[in-house]
Write a protein that binds this DNA or RNA. Structure first.
Length: 897
DNA sequence: GCCAGGACGTAC
DNA sequence: GACGTACGTCCTGGCC
C-alpha cells in the first residue's frame, strides 16, 4: 500500500503563527519579530513527530498574480498588505525549510489551495491517501474517502476531517462546500456570494435542493418571499462566486509523488540558522531531535547556573534597582524565616532582570553586615510599587503576603510561573524544582540541602544562601520566558492575565485577613461529644460482647461480618466495605450498625473540626488563616488547606454547631453571597438547551420544572417525590451518572432509572448534544475547555480501555461545567474586590467556597455591601440565563443559609 | 518512629 | 465497574 502524502499550506501557518502572538510578539536577535518562524516550525515539528510522514510537501503561494485576479480584479482586494515584520520572516522560513530538506512546491499563477487540489487529485488517481493540513474551510471541498483535512486545534493537535466529520460538523457533504461558499461568499477574499443568505440559510437550502443548480431549478418552490428574491437577484453572483471558490486540480507542478519523499528532516542543519536569529529554544529542540552528534554550544548553558552575586552595599543595590527599572520587568523572590507566611519575616530578596543573571540581597545573614532593613525597603518599593514595572514570581501569593506585612504593596505583579504551569497542565506538579527540571532540564539546589533541619534561612552562610536564592529568581525568569509562550499557544493569555493573576492579590488579602473562631464554644462542644462517644462505645461494646477499635474498618469487618454474621454488601480493595450506605442497609437487620453510624458521625466532627480547628488559631492575630491553593484543582476551582475551610459541615444540626463557632469580629457581621445553581446555569448556557434555559427564565424552582418535564405533568402538579428525583438527575447529569448509580441513589429498579434518564434527555435534548459535542471535541483535541478558554488535558479520552474512556468522558463534561462556574466566581470576586477598593470600603473578603463568597463587614457598611456584592457577582458574566446571587448576613457563619 | 496508601466522610 | 472536584483523619503495614 502506498504511504500517504501530507501537504501543508505554508502561508496559512505563517499568518496564523504571526497573529497568534500579535499582542506580545516573540523577539529574537536584534529584537526582530520571530513569532512566525517559531510558530511555523513548532507546527512542522509537531506534525513530523505526530504523523511521521514519509511523503510531505510544503506548498507555497504563487509569486505572480493568479488566474483569479485576472478573472476578477476585486479578488482579495480588501486584504491589507501583510505587515513588514511578517514579510521579513518569510525568507528565513524558506532558508530553514531548505536546510531541513523539506520538499517545497510552488506554481506561478496558482494559489496553494490549487496545489492542494492538484495533489488531492493525483493521490486519488494513484490510490494513495492524502492529508491536507489547513484550518481553512474552503479546503473541505476536497475531502473524500482518500483525502482528509487535518484541522489545527489548540495544543498542537489536529482534527481529522473525513467525509463523515465534514457532514457532522457542517451539516453538508464535502462536495456541497463549493455551493455553500458560493451562496455565503467570503468578505475576507471579497467573494460576493448572494446577499441576504447567511451560513444557516445556505445549509438549509442545500439540504433541501442538494446543489446550486438544484436550487435554481426549483426556485419557485421557495415560499419565503424575501429569500426567494435575494436568490433571484443574486443568481449571477452565486455562479460567479463559484468559479472563484472552486479549487483547481490541474496546476503545473511536480506530479511524481515519489519525488516528495521527505524522510526525517535534517534538524541539525536548522540549528545554526535558529541560533543566528535568536530562537534558542527551537534551536535546542532541533539539536535534541538531531541526536547527539550535533553539539550545540548553548545547549549546555541553558541548563547551567547563571552569574549570581550578593548585594551588601546601598550603591550596589541601586545598580540593580536601576537595571530592573530599565528592563521594565524582573523576577522576584523572598526568603523568610518561616513557611507560615502570616508570621514570616524577610531574610533576603532576590532579583533577576534577565535569564542566567540574578542577585541576592540579604536582610539578615550570619557574620555579615547587611544593608539596613529600612534602606532595602525604600529602594525595593521603587520597583515593586510601580505598576509599570512588571513583576514575575513563583507562587507570588507567598511573597505578596510577606511584603505586605513588611510594608510593601506590590503593584506590577503580572506573571506567576507556578500558576502558568498549572494552567498549561494542571495534572503535573507546579513546584519550582519540578518545573526547572521539566522545562529547563535544570536541577535546582533544594532547600533541604542548604538549610539544616529545624533551622531557618537566616542561619545559612551567605555564599550558599545567595546562590540558592538568586537561582530561584533566575529560574523564575527563565520559566517565564518559556511558559508565557506556551500560555499564548494554548489561547489562555487572556484568562491568565485578567482572571488568575489579579486573583492572587485577592487570595493574599483573604489569607492575611483570617477569620475569628470561638474556641471556648468548641471546647464545650468537644466535651459534649466526648460524653456521647463514650456512651455509644459502651453500648456498642455491650451489644458486641467485646471491646474493639470502632475506627478500624478492619476490626469492624471482623465484628460485623464474622462475629455477627451480617451479609457483606460490597467489597473494597482490601476487604468488605463498611461505609455509610452499607451500614444503613445492615441496620435493617441488626442494632449495631446504627450505633456505629452515630459514632462515626460524631467522631468525625470531633477529630476533624471541633478539636482540630482551634489548633490553627494564629498566636499573633487570634484568627484562623487558611491557605487557598490556586493550583489545587484540575478544573480551575481553588482549594483550601491547613485548615480546609471549604468543607466545614452545614447539612445537619450537629455539624452546624461548628459553623456557628465562626464569629464576625466585634462591630462586624458576615455577609455571604451565594450563586444560585451556578453549575446548572452554566450548563444551560453552554448547551444552549431550550427547555433548561426556559426553566431558569420562567421559574425559581428549576428542579420542579425539570420534574414537570420528565414526568409530563403540570408544574403545579409535581409531587415532592418527583421533584426529589428530578433534582438527583439534574446533578447526576453533570457528573455523568449512570442508570446503575441512579437506581441505587433513588432505591428504584434499574429499568425505571434508565427510563427517567431517557426521558430527561428527550426533554433536554440540547444537553445531550452538549455532552456528545464535548466528548467528540475531547477525542480530537484531548482537551476540555471552559467558556473563557481555560483548558484541561483529557488524556484517557482515546483509551482503548472502555472504563478509562468512560471516566475520561465524564471528566471532560464535568470539567467544562465546573471550570466555567469557577471562572465566573473568580471574575465576580475580582469585580467585587475592585469595587471595595474603589469605594475605599473596610469590608474584607474572607472566604470562598466554590459558589459562595463570605465577607466580614463593619456594621456601618452592611447596607452598602449587600447590593454591591449582588451586583458585582451577578455581573461577572453575561450568559443566556441570568446569574442569580442571594445575599445574607449574620454575626456567625452558622446563621447563614 | 516515619511514611504511603486505603477507607471513609465533609464540602460544593 | 458504575458520580465530578477537593482535603483531613485514622488505621495499617512496610521500612528504618
Amino acid at each position: 500500500m502506498k504511504k500517504p502524502l501530507y501537504v501543508l499550506d505554508a502561508f496559512a501557518i505563517i499568518f496564523r503563527s504571526y497573529y497568534a502572538f500579535i499582542n506580545n510578539p516573540l523577539r529574537g536577535t536584534d529584537d526582530k519579530n520571530v513569532s512566525a518562524v517559531y510558530g511555523f516550525f513548532s507546527t512542522l515539528y509537531k506534525i513530523f513527530s505526530t504523523y511521521k510522514p514519509e511523503y510531505f510537501a510544503v506548498l507555497l503561494e504563487s509569486r505572480t498574480p493568479t488566474f483569479r485576479h485576472e478573472m476578477y480584479e476585486e479578488y482579495k482586494a480588501n486584504r491589507a498588505r501583510a505587515p513588514e515584520e511578517l514579510i521579513e520572516q518569510v525568507p528565513v522560513i524558506l532558508e530553514i525549510l531548505k536546510a531541513l530538506k523539506i520538499p517545497m512546491v510552488q506554481a506561478d499563477g496558482y494559489e496553494a489551495d490549487d496545489l492542494m487540489g492538484t495533489y488531492a487529485r493525483l493521490c486519488e488517481e494513484e490510490g494513495r491517501d492524502c492529508r491536507i493540513i489547513s484550518g481553512d474551510k474552503d479546503i473541505l471541498q476536497l475531502v473524500s474517502e482518500r483525502v482528509h483535512v487535518l484541522k489545527p486545534e489548540k495544543g498542537g493537535l489536529y482534527t481529522d476531517m473525513g467525509p463523515e466529520k465534514v457532514l457532522n460538523t457542517w451539516g453538508l457533504r464535502a462536495d456541497q462546500i463549493i455551493d455553500y461558499l458560493s451562496l455565503v461568499g467570503d468578505a475576507a477574499d471579497n467573494i460576493p456570494g448572494v446577499k441576504g443568505i447567511g451560513a444557516k440559510g445556505a445549509v438549509k437550502l442545500l439540504n433541501e435542493f442538494d446543489t446550486l443548480e438544484g436550487l435554481y431549478e426549483n426556485i419557485d418552490t421557495i415560499t419565503a418571499k424575501a429569500q426567494k428574491q435575494n436568490l433571484i437577484d443574486g443568481k449571477e453572483n452565486a455562479f460567479f462566486s463559484r468559479q472563484l471558490v472552486i479549487i483547481k486540480q490541474d496546476c503545473p507542478c511536480e506530479e511524481d509523488i515519489e519525488k516528495l519523499a521527505a524522510g526525517e528532516p535534517d534538524y541539525g542543519a536548522a540549528v545554526p540558522i535558529l541560533q543566528r536569529i535568536g530562537l534558542k529554544r527551537l534551536a535546542e529542540e532541533s539539536a535534541a531531535k538531531a541526536g547527539e552528534e550535533v553539539v550545540v554550544p548553548e545547549e549546555k548553558s541553558a541548563a547551567k547556573a547563571g552569574n549570581y552575586c550578593g548585594v551588601v552595599s546601598a550603591e550596589h543595590l541601586d545598580k540593580w534597582i536601576e537595571r530592573a527599572k530599565e528592563a521594565g520587568i524582573f523576577a522576584f523572590d523572598c526568603e523568610t524565616d518561616s513557611l507560615d507566611s502570616v508570621s514570616a519575616n524577610p531574610v533576603g530578596f532576590s532579583l533577576s532582570v534577565q535569564s542566567e543573571e540574578a542577585c541576592y540581597i540579604p536582610v539578615r545573614a550570619p557574620e555579615l553586615d547587611c544593608i539596613p532593613e529600612d534602606v532595602i525597603r525604600e529602594k525595593l518599593k521603587v520597583i515593586l510599587e510601580d505598576e509599570n514595572i512588571k513583576i514575575i514570581g513563583q507562587n507570588f501569593k507567598y511573597d505578596m503576603k510577606v511584603l505586605k506585612q513588611w510594608g510593601i504593596y506590590p503593584q506590577g505583579f503580572f506573571f506567576d510561573t507556578m500558576i502558568a504551569a498549572w494552567m498549561i497542565d494542571s495534572s503535573t506538579p507546579s513546584n519550582m524544582d519540578y518545573l526547572a527540571e521539566q522545562y529547563l532540564g535544570y536541577k535546582t539546589v533544594h532547600f533541604a540541602d542548604i538549610v539544616e533541619k529545624g533551622k531557618t534561612f537566616d542561619t545559612v552562610p551567605i555564599q550558599k544562601a545567595a546562590h540558592y536564592a538568586a537561582e530561584d529568581a533566575d529560574i523564575t525568569f527563565r520559566l517565564y520566558e518559556i511558559l508565557s509562550v506556551k500560555l499564548k499557544e494554548l489561547g489562555m493569555e487572556k484568562i491568565f492575565s485578567q482572571v488568575d493573576m489579579p486573583f492572587v492579590d485577592i487570595l493574599s488579602n483573604m489569607e492575611l485577613a483570617g477569620i475569628h473562631i470561638d474556641d471556648g464554644e468548641l471546647a464545650e462542644y468537644s466535651v459534649e461529644l466526648e460524653e456521647k462517644l463514650e456512651a455509644l462505645e459502651k453500648e456498642i461494646y455491650y451489644l458486641c460482647g467485646r471491646e474493639f477499635n470502632i475506627k478500624s474498618t478492619k476490626q469492624l469487618q471482623e465484628v460485623l461480618f464474622e462475629e455477627r454474621k451480617l451479609t457483606p454488601i460490597k467489597k473494597t480493595k482490601t476487604g468488605y466495605s463498611t461505609d455509610t450506605a452499607v451500614l444503613q442497609e445492615l441496620a435493617k437487620e441488626d442494632p449495631v450498625p446504627e450505633k456505629i453510624l452515630a459514632h462515626r458521625g460524631l467522631a468525625k466532627l470531633k477529630s476533624t473540626y471541633v478539636d482540630a480547628l482551634p489548633r490553627y488559631i494564629n498566636e499573633d492575630t487570634g484568627k484562623i488563616h487558611t491557605h487557598f491553593i490556586q493550583t489545587g484543582t484540575e478544573t480551575g476551582r481553588i482549594s483550601s488547606k491547613d485548615p480546609n475551610l471549604q468543607n466545614i459541615p452545614v447539612r445537619d444540626e450537629n455539624g452546624r454547631r461548628i459553623r456557628a463557632a465562626f464569629k464576625a469580629s466585634p462591630g462586624h457581621v458576615f455577609v455571604s453571597a451565594d450563586y444560585s445553581q451556578i453549575e446548572l446555569v452554566v450548563l444551560a448556557h453552554l448547551s444552549g438547551d431550550k427547555a433548561l434555559t426556559e426553566a431558569f427564565i420562567s421559574g425559581e424552582d428549576v428542579h420542579g420544572r425539570t420534574a414537570a418535564l420528565i414526568f409530563h405533568v403540570e408544574p403545579e402538579a409535581v409531587t415532592k417525590e418527583q421533584r426529589r428525583i428530578a433534582k438527583v438527575i439534574n446533578f447526576g447529569v453533570m457528573y455523568g451518572m449512570s442508570a446503575f448509580r441512579l437506581s441505587n441513589e433513588l432505591s428504584i429498579p434499574r429499568g425505571e432509572a434508565s427510563s427517567f434518564i431517557k426521558s430527561y434527555f428527550e426533554q433536554y435534548s440540547g444537553i445531550k448534544d452538549f455532552i456528545d459535542k464535548t466528548i467528540e471535541k475531547a477525542e480530537e483535541t484531548e482537551l476540555a475547555e471552559t467558556l473563557f478558554g481555560r483548558i484541561r488535558h483529557i488524556r484517557m479520552i482515546n483509551s482503548r480501555n472502555k472504563m478509562e474512556k468512560k471516566a475520561a468522558e465524564r471528566i471532560a463534561v464535568n470539567s467544562r461545567i465546573q471550570g466555567t462556574a469557577a471562572d465566573i466566581v473568580k471574575m465576580g470576586m475580582i469585580r467585587l474586590a475592585g469595587e471595595l477598593k474603589k469605594r475605599q470600603l473596610k469590608s474584607k473578603i474572607l472566604l470562598q467556597v466554590h459558589d459562595e463568597c463570605i465577607l466580614e463587614v463593619p456594621d456601618g457598611e452592611v447596607e452598602i455591601i449587600k447590593p454591591l456584592m449582588k451586583e458585582a457577582l451577578e455581573g461577572a458574566a453575561e450568559l443566556s440565563v441570568p446569574l442569580r446571587v442571594s445575599v445574607e448576613s449574620a454575626t456567625s457563619w452558622g446563621e447563614i443559609h
